[in-house]
Amino acid sequence: MVNIKTVTIVGTEPVAVYEDFDSYWRDQVARATEPRKSKLIRLKQHWDWGAVCFAQSVDLPPPCLANVIFLFGSPEKTYIELNKPKVKELLSNPDNIVTLQLKKTAPGKNAIIALVHTQEETEIFITQIYLPMDATELFKE
């Protein structure tokens, strides 16, 4: 599993900080009403399955890349990134700690800032994307 620790939602006052990805996700689902709640659940299932496929395609055990699609916002972008050896190494190493900052930068446009803290350094991934409709729903209040 990609070692996502904190998730920070920026733009609210104060910002919302979650201490791990699961608590962030549970809160998103708990606060959602139908039909968004069902969409979120389906989206997560879709992304969980995608992560298993990506792990197989880059020769990693399936759990290694759980939640990876969330970092890059879409399966397409994730596929491109995971084919970079350095990205694969950074994200599949459970000793590395990943933190996320989520920010709406324009209507329909979201930035995901992922910091990967390794023992020696910090790598910064920034995804500025127009998310597909389902994913955009994630960022709505």
Binding site: V10, A106, I113, H117, E120, T122, I124
Partner: peptide
């Protein structure tokens, strides 16, 4: 809005500061 991430390692301490403006950010 300023977000501070502080990572202590055996090699030193790494501080990453993200400053969020209304519609974008700087690191």
């Amino acid at each position: 809005q300023v977000i501070l991430e502080i990572k202590e390692t055996d090699y030193g301490t790494h501080v990453v500061v993200t400053v969020h403006r209304e519609n974008d950010f700087e690191i």
